[in-house]
Design a protein around this nucleic acid. Structure first.
Lengths: 345, 345
DNA sequence: CTGAAAGCGCTAACAC
DNA sequence: GTGTTAGCGCTTTCAG
C-alpha cells in the first residue's frame, strides 16, 4: 500500500532519465557532471526530469568508472577521547563543506590494529587518508612499531598526519611544537622553585616523546637530574589516575606535568585526597586545554594545542593537493600555555 | 623508479587472478565470497595467488553488483560532545567486528542539516542508518521539525535510533527511560526539602522533553508549581553556563537539575563564584555520568544512561535484522542515579 | 552539441 | 565443481 499522495519512490537510473528527457545517457551523464558542452535547453530539460523524479546517480557505478567516491578516510586511536573527538568533529564538518564524506576508523594504539585500519580503509578506495594523533608515527604500544604501512599507503593516496610527523613522499605532516611548549611549561615550574616534576602520560607516541624531550631539556637547563621513577604512564581516566598516584605513596614530587588534561585532573584529585594544597604543595600542568581543564577545582594551567588549527591547516593541504597544487610536507605549529590556577608562575 | 626489492604494486583484478591461477573468474569470485562449492585444491591455489599478489576485490564493482558495500551510516549532532563521542566510538568498534564500515555525519541540530545528512548518506547506498541522539525525533531547534525524512529513509533501509523514539515501519528505537529517571532524581531533591529546582538544558529533543516531563511530574506530586522561569536553555560550555547563571542574579533556586553533566558543572562553577555551599545552599544533579561528573569539585550526582547499553542493544538489532531475524521496534532502558556529592539525598 | 558503444570489475544465473 | 555470459549504472572515447 502506498501512502496517499506520494509518488512511488523507485530508484531510477540514467537510462530512465535519458528516456524521459528524450536524450541519450551520455547527455544525462554530461549534465550530471556539469560538462560545459551541453546546450542550455537540453540541460534544463534533463535537470527538470532529474529533479522531478528525484534522481541520484548510483555511487558504485560512478565509482567504478572514476575510481573515486569523494571519500576521505579518518583514522584515530579513539574518538571517545576528547581531543580526538574535537579533531574528528572539526575535520568532518570542514570536509563535508568540500563535498567529501568521511569514513571513520578507530584503531586503538596497537600496531597490528593500526595496520589493519589503514589496510581496510585503503580497500575502500578513499581519496585521501587522515591520521589523527601522533600514535601513527612509529611510537605505538609495542616495540615493533613501524610506519612502513603508512608509507605504503602513501604510494597510492596522499596521507595527512595531524599532530604526527613522518617524512616520506606523499605524506604531509602538521604538528604541534610540543617539545618547545613542554620546555616552557616545565621551565616555569622549575623557575618557581620546583625540584621534582612528575611526568604523567597515557601512551607512547611521537607527541609524547617530544613532550618528554622538552621536559628533560628543561630539567637539564636547571641542572636537575632526569629521574626515570618520575615518569609514569597510565590510562587517562580520572579516578584511576588518582588511585594509582595514591598507591605510589613513597614517590615524592612537588609538581606534575601531564601530557593530557584528564591525567592532570587525576593529579588534582590525588592532591585533594591527600589534603595537598594546589599549587602550594603540588603544582600541576595539563595538556590540550580541553573542557576538563576548566571543570576541575582549581582550574588547570594547561597547554593549548588547538586541534582546530592543525585540522584547518591539514584541510587546506588536502584541498590544495586534490586540486593538484603544491603543499608543504611539514607544518609545525606553536602551542601556547594557558595559565590558570594550578601553577604559581 | 621502483623501491629496491619491492614488488610492483599494480592493482590486479579478478581476471588477472583467474589467469594466474588457471581458473575462471567465476571460481575466483567464489573463493573470494567463501562459496562452499569450490574444491579444496582450487581454493588453495587461488588463495595462494591472491595472497601472493595482494589482491583486493574492487569495492565499487562489488557494490554495483550487490547494491551494498557493507557500510553503515552514523549520524549524530556533534561527535565532539562527550556522550555522542562515546556512543560513536562504541558503535564503530562493534560494527567493525561484524565487518561493517561506518560513515560518519555530524548534522548539528537544525532540521535542514539533519535532512541533508540523511539524504547524503542514503545516496551512499548504506545498508543501515543509525541516528544517535534524541534530536532526531521531531524535537529539533526549529518549529517545523518533522521526522518525515527519517520515515522516508526507512522505506529503503532500516533506521536505528539511539536514545530516540519514532514509531514507523522499519524504524527501531532503543531509548532511555528518561522520564522515570528524571522523576526519581527530582523527587529526591524535593524529598530533601528543595522547593525551587532549576531545569537546565542545552537543546530541545525528545529526550529533553522526557526529562522535563519527569521533572514536572515530580513537582506536581509534591504540590509544587511548574515555573517557566526556572527552565533555562543554553550551550553546554562550562564557563558560559556559569556566566549566564551569574548574570541572572534575580532568579532564585535552591537546586539544579541539568540534562547534561557539562551544564551541571557550569552550575557548580556558578556556586563557587557566588560562594554558595554545595549541596547545602545549592543541590545539583547532572546527566550522563560522564568523566565531567568526577572531574569537578564536589563530584556530581548524575544519571547514568549508559550509552554502551543502548549501543549494544542497537547493534544486536542491526545484526539480527541484517540476518533477516525479527527485532523489537522499541526497547526502553532504565537509567540509574549515581549518587555522589552534589546532593544531600 | 549529441549519440553509440566499449568498458570499469564483479556477481549470479545458467550451462556443462 | 567449474566455466560462460549477461548484466549492475555510469563515464568516456569516438563518430557524426
Amino acid at each position: 500500500m502506498l501512502p496517499g499522495g506520494g509518488r512511488m519512490e523507485i530508484d531510477m537510473n540514467i537510462y530512465d532519465i535519458a528516456k524521459l528527457s528524450g536524450v541519450s545517457i551520455a547527455t544525462v551523464s554530461r549534465v550530471v557532471n556539469g560538462s560545459p558542452k551541453v546546450s542550455g535547453q537540453t540541460k534544463e530539460k534533463v535537470l527538470a526530469v532529474m529533479e522531478e523524479y528525484n534522481y541520484t546517480p548510483n555511487v558504485f557505478a560512478r565509482g567504478l568508472g572514476l575510481g573515486s567516491m569523494q571519500t576521505i578516510g579518518i583514522i584515530c586511536p579513539d574518538v571517545s577521547d576528547a581531543y580526538m573527538a574535537r579533531a574528528v568533529a572539526f575535520l568532518e564538518r570542514r570536509l563535508k563543506e568540500y563535498g567529501y564524506d568521511c569514513i571513520l576508523y578507530c584503531s586503538g594504539h596497537r600496531q597490528e590494529r593500526k595496520e589493519e585500519a589503514v589496510d581496510l580503509l585503503m580497500k575502500k578506495q578513499i581519496d585521501a587518508l587522515v591520521l589523527v594523533g601522533s600514535t601513527y608515527t612509529g611510537y605505538g604500544d609495542d616495540e615493533s612499531s613501524s610506519t612502513e604501512y603508512i608509507e605504503k599507503a602513501a604510494e597510492k593516496i596522499p596521507v595527512f598526519l595531524i599532530n604526527g610527523r613522518i617524512s616520506g613522499s606523499n605524506i604531509y605532516s602538521v604538528y604541534n611544537r610540543d617539545e618547545e611548549a613542554s620546555y616552557e611549561a616545565v621551565s616555569g615550574l622549575l623557575r618557581a622553585g620546583r625540584k621534582r616534576v612528575l611526568f604523567l602520560t597515557d601512551s607512547s607516541s611521537y607527541s609524547v616523546s617530544q613532550k618528554m624531550k622538552g621536559y628533560e631539556r628543561a630539567l637539564q637547563d636547571y641542572s636537575l637530574p632526569v629521574l626515570e621513577e618520575l615518569k609514569l604512564c597510565m590510562d587517562n581516566r580520572i579516578h584511576l589516575v588518582r588511585d594509582i598516584l595514591l598507591s605510589r605513596s613513597t614517590l615524592e614530587y612537588d609538581s606534575v606535568f601531564a601530557t593530557d588534561d584528564a591525567l592532570a585532573v587525576g593529579a588534582v584529585k590525588y592532591a585533594h585526597a591527600k589534603g595537598l594544597k594546589i599549587p602550594e604543595d603540588l603544582s600541576i600542568i595539563g595538556y590540550n586545554n580541553s573542557e576538563y581543564s576548566v571543570c576541575c577545582e582549581p582550574e588547570l594551567t594547561t597547554i593549548d594545542n588547538t586541534s582546530e588549527k592543525l585540522c584547518n591547516l591539514t584541510i587546506d593541504n588536502i584541498m590544495k593537493l586534490l586540486k593538484g597544487e603544491e603543499v608543504p610536507a611539514e607544518v609545525p605549529v606553536k602551542c601556547m600555555i594557558v595559565k590558570r590556577c594550578t601553577t604559581d608562575f
